[in-house]
């Protein structure tokens, strides 16, 4: 079945009649299932341009719908609704409402790069997934995903000191997402680590948590990175038609 007909055969778009005769022909029952007629009026003509303006989405227009990305996809194998090929199709057509049906799962891309590896058109579907996830959040269609929270916690530490310290990232992430740090499985894992690990090493690791690892003379890089991030955020919002007032001020 061509992918553009996918939405037509959803249960709510199908009707069967227990008893119906049209022009003398009996069309009752399951074997005469009808598809509801429909008219599409809600195209967002700017959708492709908007996704292309965000990092990762630049080459979405190159797609010729071969389906290699979805065929290779790690997440699709677990959840068939996770369908990069279909979302790219919808982005290109501007079918925003249809796209929004899947808004809560787009962020689940695991960036395994199988799609980008096999794509014969260099669309970079992995990048498109990230651009689409950003688009959904910037437009206010979804709340910030746990993945975004993790990325920002991690990135903010890199920007601050040049490096990360893993336990600090974990603590920061659980704090941001309002989860308790004392997860049963993390406790179980720590217990297992304690089987053989000598006290000396644990002390050294604890010390590293206190004395943050950092890159020396990072100040200039930190300033340059922060300026760049702020500029990119302004540009991204402007490309999506947000902050119109700020645009006039430039």
């Amino acid at each position: 079945m061509p992918i553009h007909e996918k939405s037509l055969i959803r249960p709510e778009n199908l009707t069967t009649h227990d008893k119906l005769e049209i022009d003398g022909v009996d069309v009752s029952g399951h074997w005469s299932t009808f598809i509801e007629s429909r008219v599409l009026t809600d195209y967002n003509e700017a959708l492709q341009d908007e996704v292309q303006a965000l990092p990762g989405g630049e080459a979405v227009h190159r797609c010729w719908q071969c389906g290699s990305c979805t065929n290779a996809c790690t997440v699709n194998a677990i959840n068939p609704d996770f369908n990069p090929r279909y979302w790219i199709y919808l982005i290109r057509l501007g079918m925003e409402q249809e796209l929004l049906r899947d808004k809560d799962i787009v962020w689940q891309c695991v960036s395994c790069n199988k799609c980008t590896h096999v794509c014969p058109r260099d669309v970079n579907p992995e990048g498109v997934m990230k651009a689409l996830a950003h688009w959904l959040e910037l437009k206010g269609h979804t709340a910030r995903s746990p993945s975004t929270e993790f990325d920002e916690e991690f990135a903010s530490q890199v920007f601050e000191t040049g490096k990360i310290e893993e336990s600090r990232v974990i603590r920061g992430f659980f704090r941001r997402t309002g989860q308790p740090l004392m997860q049963d499985w993390l406790i179980a894992m720590t217990r297992r680590m304690l089987r053989h690990v000598p006290v000396k090493l644990l002390l050294a690791m604890g010390l590293q948590g206190l004395l943050r690892p950092s890159t020396r003379s990072w100040g200039a890089a930190r300033g340059a990175i922060r300026d760049y991030v702020a500029r990119r955020e302004r540009e991204n919002r402007r490309a999506l038609g947000l902050d119109a007032a700020a645009h006039q001020g430039d």
Binding site: P55, G127, T148, V158, R216, I225, V229
Partner: peptide, 20 residues
């Protein structure tokens, strides 16, 4: 005096920043 390579997380924030 090395720094973080940017990992996947900075790439998700902005790929060119990870490149830097």
């Amino acid at each position: 005096n090395w720094n973080c390579c940017g990992a996947m997380e900075v790439k998700n924030v902005d790929p060119k920043l990870q490149t830097y």
